[in-house]
C-alpha cells in the first residue's frame, strides 16, 4: 500500500530524513516512533506530497506521489500535525467542503457525513466556529476530515496529542475498528499508544530507521523482559528477600526500590519464558513470605526507545 524507497530530505547541509526505505500493507497499524526532530513529520509530509523529497520515491497504492500525486492523494486520508483547520468555519461547513473536494455526492455524501459526525461525536458543536472549540474537538474535526472518504490509507500525525485519557481511548478504538482492511500509519511519541494499537513499530532517529518490529518483539529486547517484580511486606525484610532471590539460578541481578518496597528480579538472557516467575513464586511459598504483589514484566518499551534512539547516553 505504501512503498518508500530511499526517501531523503535535506535542508541545506542538514539531513532530516536519510535514505528511508520500507513497505507496509493493508491491515497494518504502523506506529512511527522517534524523538522530537527525528524526521517523523517530514516523512509524513513527503508521503502525502506536501513536501517534495530531495531524493527517493514514495508511492501509495501503486501511485507515485511525485508523478501521480492526485491519484495517490485520493487514496489517502491525512491528519497533519496539530490538526490544522479553517478556524472561521463550522465543523459542518468544513466537512461539507472536504466532501465536495473528495467528490462525494448525493446519498453517499450524506451517509458518510452522518457516519463520521456520529463516530467522532461532533453533533454538539456542528454549528459553532472551529476556533471556539476545545483542543479535543479540533483534533476530532481533523480526524473526521481524514476519514470522511473512507480512504484505504490513513496517515495520522500525532492523532491523540492534546486529548484527555477518555478521548485518547476513543481515538484508539476508532483506529482499531478501522484497521482491518486499511493501512494506518500513526506517528507518536506516546509509547502506551504503540502498545495499545500498533501491529508494527518503526523507530527512527536522526532520519534513519533504527528498529522495525512488532511491539511485542521490541519489548522482548528489553532487559526487563521476563523480569518479575514483587512487593515486600515491610522494609525490615526487604534485604533478606532480595538476597534470597538473587541466588536463584535464573536471575541475573535484582533492583530494589526501598521507597515503594519493590524488588525486581531481572532474568538471565536466553532463559525460558516465565522461568523467573516460577522460581520466585516457589521461593515465596517455601519461605512463607507475605508479599504484597507479584508481577511478570513483558519488557519496557520506553527503555528500549531510550536505548536505541540514544537517549540512554544523554
Amino acid at each position: 500500500m505504501i512503498k518508500i524507497d530511499g526517501l531523503t530530505k535535506r535542508y541545506g547541509q542538514h539531513t532530516v530524513v536519510d535514505q528511508l526505505s520500507f513497505d507496509c500493507a493493508a491491515g497494518e497499524v504502523l506506529g512511527f516512533l522517534g524523538p522530537n526532530g527525528a524526521g517523523k513529520s517530514t516523512t509524513m509530509k513527503m508521503v502525502t506530497g506536501f513536501v517534495a523529497p530531495s531524493s527517493g520515491h514514495a508511492s501509495v497504492c501503486g501511485h507515485d506521489i511525485g508523478t501521480d500525486a492526485l491519484a495517490a492523494r485520493r487514496k489517502m486520508g491525512y491528519l497533519p500535525e496539530g490538526a490544522p483547520c479553517y478556524p472561521e468555519m463550522t465543523p459542518r461547513s468544513f466537512l461539507e467542503f472536504i466532501a465536495d473536494i473528495r467528490g462525494l455526492s448525493g446519498e453517499k455524501r450524506k451517509q458518510r457525513l452522518d457516519e463520521v459526525i456520529g463516530r467522532l461525536h461532533l453533533e454538539p458543536v456542528l454549528s459553532q466556529s472551529i476556533d471556539t472549540l476545545s483542543k479535543g474537538f479540533k483534533r476530532r474535526v481533523g480526524l473526521a476530515q481524514a476519514i470522511l472518504h473512507d480512504p484505504e490509507v490513513l496517515i495520522l500525525d500525532e492523532p491523540t496529542d492534546g486529548l484527555d485519557p477518555n478521548q485518547k481511548h476513543e481515538v484508539r478504538q476508532l483506529i482499531q475498528s478501522m484497521a482491518k482492511d486499511k493501512l494506518i500509519v500513526i506517528s507518536t511519541h506516546i509509547l502506551e499508544e504503540v502498545e495499545a494499537v500498533c501491529s508494527r513499530v518503526i523507530i527512527i532517529s536522526s532520519g534513519k530507521i533504527v528498529a522495525d518490529d512488532t511491539p511485542h518483539n521490541l519489548a522482548a529486547r528489553s532487559r526487563y523482559h521476563n523480569a518479575v517484580r514483587l512487593t515486600a511486606p515491610d522494609a525490615a525484610s526487604i534485604g533478606a528477600i532480595e538476597s534470597a532471590i538473587a541466588r536463584l539460578s535464573s536471575v541475573s541481578t535484582t533492583e530494589t526500590d526501598r521507597q515503594h518496597l519493590t524488588i525486581t528480579a531481572i532474568a538471565k538472557s536466553g532463559g525460558k519464558d516465565a522461568e523467573v516467575l516460577r522460581q520466585v513464586s516457589q521461593l515465596i511459598n517455601e519461605k512463607g513470605w507475605n508479599v504484597g504483589g507479584l508481577q511478570l514484566e513483558t519488557g519496557r518499551l520506553d527503555e528500549i526507545f531510550r536505548q536505541i534512539t540514544g537517549g540512554a547516553r544523554a
Binding site: T48, G49, R73, M76, P84, C85, I101, R102
Partner: peptide, 9 residues
Amino acid sequence: SIELLMTLP
C-alpha cells in the same frame, strides 16, 4: 491549513 489544502486531491 495549507498542508491540509495541498494534500487534498
